[in-house]
């Protein structure tokens, strides 16, 4: 009976079995990936005295929002959030303006040295910003910008990969519309502003979202550029939490959860755009 049954199984039954197996494996990995976050939330909801219980337990009779309340009233989290917003928004706007202009210049205009400059910009994609921190810090000292928003914003605007991505997109746009407008006497600035940019909304959104996420989460450079607690961004501020809260784990986890929340909330609302932009910039960048 069993020997006969095996070859008898229809392809559809096999496919069903594969689907169920795939679903189970997926669910197990997803659960493993969610557990650290759930544990952080769970810890944050416990009263301070129960976080270090042995044996480890998920349940407590006294779950509540005490730790979150303390973090909100006692820490600078709101301040850090505002700083992160200023820095990430500033960098994103400057990147969108400068990179799209440069990409248009490289894609649609002719001038002496264009090819060389483009090669220099593309080569810059290889430079890891982390190896530049020492000279960059020295430069900021020299400019008197240490401990300002500018110190965090300006260096992050030099993003050659974004110029490259935008240039590639502009290269792919049909030139007919611009030619027609040019015949009508439109200047290159109008072509850029009224024709090329409106046609490039998807790629501009991708570059903008990607830049915003990376700036928002950037740690190393803002950590060096700023030591004034009033100017710290979320990643930098949270780095000080472990030492300032000592063993108050519920509050530490509450800060961690709150610190990660803004982008997670944004993700829920802009899931499709974020996925598309990360995939797009990731695949065409570097």
């Amino acid at each position: 009976m069993t020997a006969v049954a095996t070859p008898d199984r229809s392809p559809r039954a096999t496919a069903r079995a594969w689907n169920v197996a795939g679903l189970i494996v997926t669910a197990i990995i997803a659960l493993l990936w969610l557990v650290p976050l759930l544990w952080a939330v769970d810890t944050a909801l416990k009263p301070e005295g129960e976080t270090t219980k042995i044996p480890v337990t998920w349940w407590s009779d006294n779950l509540g929002f005490e730790a979150f309340r303390k973090v909100f009233t006692e820490s600078d989290l709101v301040r850090w959030f505002l700083n992160s917003t200023v820095v990430a928004a500033g960098v994103t706007v400057l990147v969108l303006v400068t990179a799209s202009m440069a990409a248009y210049g490289f894609a649609r205009t002719e001038f002496r040295g264009r090819k060389v400059l483009l090669a220099v910009v593309v080569a810059g994609i290889m430079v890891p910003p982390q190896v530049l921190v020492v000279p960059l810090f020295r430069e900021m000292l020299g400019l008197g910008l240490v401990d300002t928003y500018w110190a965090m914003i300006l260096p992050q605007v030099a993003a050659p990969a974004m110029v490259f991505i935008l240039k590639k997109f502009f290269d792919g746009l049909p030139r007919e519309l611009e030619e027609a407008a040019r015949v009508d006497g439109a200047s290159p600035w109008r072509l850029y502003w009224q024709i090329v940019l409106p046609l490039s909304r998807p790629v501009l959104a991708a570059v903008g979202i990607f830049t915003f996420i990376f700036t928002w989460n950037n740690f190393f450079w803002p950590f060096l550029a700023v030591s004034d607690p009033d100017l710290m961004t979320i990643p930098v501020g949270l780095a000080t939490v472990q030492s300032s809260y000592g063993l108050r784990y519920a509050q530490i986890m509450a800060s961690a959860v709150l610190g990660g929340l803004p982008l997670l909330v944004a993700y829920v609302f802009f899931q499709r755009d974020i996925i598309r932009s990360v995939a797009h910039t990731g695949l065409s960048g570097t």
Binding site: L94, T98, A99, A102, G105, F106, G124, P135, L154, A158
Partner: peptide, 20 residues
């Protein structure tokens, strides 16, 4: 040349905070 004006703002950032 117009192309230089288009690329200049980025190139300034690029020169100051990456090349230099």
């Amino acid at each position: 040349p117009t192309g230089v004006l288009f690329t200049l703002p980025f190139l300034l950032f690029y020169a100051a905070f990456l090349i230099w």
